[in-house]
């Protein structure tokens, strides 16, 4: 029998595309995304689940990909920041972050956008408190969060209007 800790075949759907790769079962999902699949939009901030920079959506749940052994996402559907834009066209949420100046150094931005997307998919018209609550797992040390929250609120209104 083969070594249970050795590399094995992992199948998952990433941003709508089926992928099969060989990885060690305890490799972090973050590393598999960044190194195996070259999806470097997800960032490593702290590597211990505190900062949210590596957030991705796994089967509809917002998770920190630095804490997920890749074996846990066998056959899962994953959305990363690369899955937000339609080819070269930004999503309304991304556009809204841009319009409101909701980014400075950009390391937290992919996680912020996924957390905001996850919120808006559940709560289309969030209150300012709901926005702050939903983004509380994502640390930003540049902006003070004001423009980021504004970007989310702005995107929510825009989606309702058009």
């Amino acid at each position: 029998m083969s070594d249970p800790r050795g590399p094995r075949e992992i199948s998952l759907t990433v941003n709508g595309q089926g992928k099969t790769l060989r990885a060690y079962p305890m490799e972090r999902l973050l590393d598999v995304l960044r190194q195996h699949l070259k999806l470097t939009g997800s960032k490593e901030g702290c590597g211990e689940g505190e900062c949210g920079a590596c957030a991705v959506i796994v089967d509809g749940a917002l998770v920190n990909s630095c804490l997920v052994p890749v074996l846990q996402v066998q056959n899962s559907t994953i959305v990363t920041i690369e899955g937000m834009a339609q080819s070269s066209r930004l999503s309304p949420l991304q556009k809204s972050f841009l319009d409101c100046g909701g980014a400075q150094c950009g390391i937290c931005t992919p996680g912020m956008i996924l957390a905001a997307h996850h919120l808006l998919s559940r709560v289309p018209r969030p209150s300012p408190e709901e926005i702050r609550e939903a983004l509380a797992g994502n640390l930003c040390r540049c902006t003070g969060y004001a423009q980021i929250c504004e970007g989310v609120a702005n995107a929510a209104n825009r989606e309702v209007l058009g």
């Binding site: 901030g45 509380a136 994502n138 640390l139 930003c140 040390r141 969060y145 004001a146």
Partner: peptide
């Protein structure tokens, strides 16, 4: 030395800034 006890304010903690 880790983010766990280097308590950075989150969006939920930050007061309005003038």
């Amino acid at each position: 030395g880790q983010m766990t006890n280097y308590i950075m304010p989150t969006s939920a903690d930050l007061p309005p800034i003038r």
